[in-house]
Design a protein around this nucleic acid. Structure first.
Lengths: 205, 205, 205, 205
DNA sequence: AATGAATGAGGCTTCATTCAT
DNA sequence: GATGAATGAAGCCTCATTCAT
């Protein structure tokens, strides 16, 4: 049986992925070199190129995983509570909690994606960001619809709904950002409460 | 009037500043090399070092100008209207308008300041970010106080006020961010309206 | 014998070492650039960094070799003769002979180490100089002890012995220096004879 | 009287000289930039070029002064005492004392002049070193002749005399060097005593 | 499947020197 | 006399990527 084992191959590819993920999360993309990643999996630098064509490609792969995990975590949190206010709060807290440990990483991808990032990263990255926005937006929108249906919220037209989602999402991203910069997530609960309260006042029946 | 003209005196230093500012705004700090800046003013690379000790120093100088301009623009806009709602709206729109043309730049400093940036930038940069937050925060807080005094807003305790400012600021930053990433500022007015409305509902008497 | 050959393994590292050694010897550290070294082994400049982290590291490595070689040569020469006078003479001549071909190099390390060098070199370099002094001093001291034991020399107290070693060592270094500057080692034997004779007269029984 | 004042011109030239001298003494040639020198005299960098064609030329000028001062100091010290042993001791101590405060400077010129220095400096420098050796040698030789004449020393033939001078000179230089490297001149007197005693034993009647 | 070796391209900084004014 | 301004040449170092084995 000298057939190459595709599972094993994937295993290493995954090792690289996990190592890169961890490193990117802690230090950010720029600080991490291909050598850092290679050392983390105990292999030579050039070996990485057997599994991924470029640093960018590794980054893309890491992103996909992160996004999946983030969205899953948020959805799970939202589904565990009932009222709209609880759901929105859960949404915010879940997102902030996941991001708390992503610093360097999400920072740049999720909201961060600043001009630097944008000019360095290929289009794929922008697509990824859009994906997050879209998926998270979908969750939020479901919450709104659910609230309207349940009679908790005022009925609003499509355009308002869209903007509301945008504003909500932007708000959480902004809060996250400040907390990351301050490197202080201590007030999360409290700030989220204020945020949710203000928002709810603005939209509830 | 034999007063020496300070502008003329540092004409070149200013040229560098302006060139760097423009370049940083469009492309971000990392993408721009000293050579780019030098070429932009039609001089040799080493000439820059006659006016600034390092790339970092240029960057610092650019920042100072940007911050001054940003805060001034916001304050001016806010002072031109009377009601709280108008002021908050003015605040948001002024900020977003200034930032619209800053992309690469503010992105990285004001809100952007992501983990990468933070580890690469020196302490000065973080200080600058703090400065913006503080100054903008002060403006917002004045608006709130003004509104409470005028009876437009509910009176809230100190802690709530602080958090409210934080949430407001974070929100605008988040919105800005999304717009920059989308590279689409078309809906500014509308989004700001939604944002302000929701917020106002949450805090007005 | 399947033992891996350590020499072969680091063949290139050694090539760099040897090239740098030769270049440093002839031209001195400052004159030699990384590019010079790279060209000397027929490779690109950045390739050097694969084997050594910095110019300093190369220099350190060269030093280690030089010191080993120098001390070994001296010890060998000293051990080949019997009387104290012969040994001291052997010491001087061996040292001068080794240094004759080191010019730029030893010059700067061994004795040379001037204030310039000292402020530019890192601590390691000073340590290296100290090492040479210490090892050579040990050899000289053994000669003295040997001479006292054999009754050739006057017994002297510890402090005198120490100073004597210092004076002897300094003397040889001084002579070396002059010869290097004159670029004339022709009179070595004769000068060493004079030196040794004067010294011996001062210390023999 | 619009005649240019040669004295004033010389005055500035001298200011430069003195400033450079002090700086070189303390920090060594390499560490000092033209800007350092210019700042020290409170003028612009390029002004130096009005008085000296190049850094090298300044250095040359500084050297000349230093040599004059050194030789004068030594001669004075030697002339103040009577016996040969005292004179040699005076010679050594005077030289070491002058050099003690010259570190960076003499180091490189007087004895130091290592291969680096030699390849960086122009031929003039080597000439200067030779000049020191020659002048100091002359002083030493006079001491020897004086001693022989007075009957203190054995009569030796011309060649021995020459070598003796060389050895003496080299010895002092070597001692100086070690002391500079150690940055410790505390034992000067004692070491010079040992040196002189050993030497005297070797040459006195 | 893995990697050792090599490097090109690029980046920041320093400094002696020139030159027009 | 003096200098502000400008720079070319040089130097050190980093890193993603390639490629033969």
């Amino acid at each position: 049986m000298t057939v190459t084992n595709p599972i094993k191959e994937d295993a290493i590819q995954d090792q690289i992925l996990q190592a890169a993920k961890r490193l990117f999360q802690v230090h950010g993309l720029y600080k991490i070199t291909m050598d850092d990643v290679a050392k983390a999996i105990g292999k030579g630098r050039s070996s990485l190129y057997y599994y991924y064509k470029s640093k960018d490609e590794i980054f893309d792969a890491v992103m996909e995983v992160e996004i999946r995990e983030l969205v899953a975590a948020i959805a799970a949190a939202v589904n565990q509570v009932q009222t709209v206010e609880q759901k929105i709060k859960a949404f915010c807290i879940a997102k902030l909690n996941v991001l708390r440990e992503r610093r360097g990483f999400y920072n740049m991808l999720d909201v961060g994606m600043d001009a630097d990032a944008m000019s360095n990263f290929n289009k794929t990255k922008v697509v990824h960001h859009g994906l997050i926005m879209q998926q998270e937006g979908a969750v939020l929108r479901q919450i709104l619809d659910y609230g309207i249906e349940r009679g908790e919220l005022k009925a609003v037209d499509e355009r308002d709904k869209k903007e509301l989602v945008f504003v909500l999402l932007s708000g959480v991203h902004g809060i996250k950002r400040e907390m990351i910069i301050d490197n202080n997530f201590d007030g999360v609960e409290s700030v989220v409460n204020t945020f949710t309260r203000v928002i709810m006042n603005g939209i509830k029946k």
